[in-house]
Design a protein around this nucleic acid. Sequence first.
DNA 1: CACTATTAGTTGATTCTTGCAACCAATTTA
DNA 2: TAAATTGGTTGCAAGAATCAACTAATAGTG
Lengths: 155, 155
Amino acid sequence: MESSKLLGYMLGQTLRVFKNQMVSEFKEMEIELTIEQFVILSLLNSNCDLIQRDLASQLQKDKSIIVRQINCLLENQYVVRLTNKDDKRVKNLILTKKGFEKLNQMKEIASEVSGKLLTGISENELEIFQNVLLKIQENGGIEEDTFNCGFNQLK
Amino acid sequence: MESSKLLGYMLGQTLRVFKNQMVSEFKEMEIELTIEQFVILSLLNSNCDLIQRDLASQLQKDKSIIVRQINCLLENQYVVRLTNKDDKRVKNLILTKKGFEKLNQMKEIASEVSGKLLTGISENELEIFQNVLLKIQENGGIEEDTFNCGFNQLK
DNA sequence: CACTATTAGTTGATTCTTGCAACCAATTTA
DNA sequence: TAAATTGGTTGCAAGAATCAACTAATAGTG
């Protein structure tokens, strides 16, 4: 029970560790994308039906932020934005070859960092860890569907 | 193994859930402090020897950010900043009565939110979950001492 | 069909946060 | 005593986030 008071702090510290490692790896490999942009590319790659609205709701950010992030990815030719034929309001987002390659490079780094940070943790512990994270998100009211969507995409 | 790729994303999403809940609770209770400021007050309360340098290293932020956070807490009289007698470079940070009361109020909220988010998770699972978080931080190079310090303080 | 509401996306203004470098004053080290 | 280090502070610029207003397209309603 006492540990419950620490939840946010523990999560925050741990995420910070992960992010810091990723940022320094990105810097070393001269990758000029941010972690958030990496996440966006990951999501787009695993589900090309995702539109900006979906990204906003999954990442729980304002839609204007997503627009600007995509603009940035666009300028650097990692992604293409096309108006949907059936509904001219929506824009489809497609990774370019360059974007795909960069994504794979970043995934590689993420995998290494995760591997490093998870050394000494058993499969079983990892499984429980992951389930607790999922459970917290469920309890927090993130709809199963939306979340599982993101979850599967990143595998 | 496949799950390792998700680590950062999972942590990020989960932390977001927690933060959102806290922010909306804070808003509801008309608490005008941020989560970060709450954490700083917690740390200061449990170890009054902590100075700005320590806060910066524990929270892994630039010292300038800490100065400004403290300035803000100062303006609202949650904290007092005093020059240390033995070493005039050092500033000691002491919670005011107002700060202490506000801290308790926020701790109450944090406890409720954590409790809500952790429902349906067994003691055993929680223990493993916590250990994995600690392990990740260790693997990430956060020194045991520094970290345990923060950990214990928040109990 | 026409009117209204809703939706996806975009833009602008504004604020908040962050990171970096320069800097001061006090203290250590050599 | 001179040089280096340390804790703290400030200024500035870049990035991220918020909010409101707005367009264009579509959906819903009578």
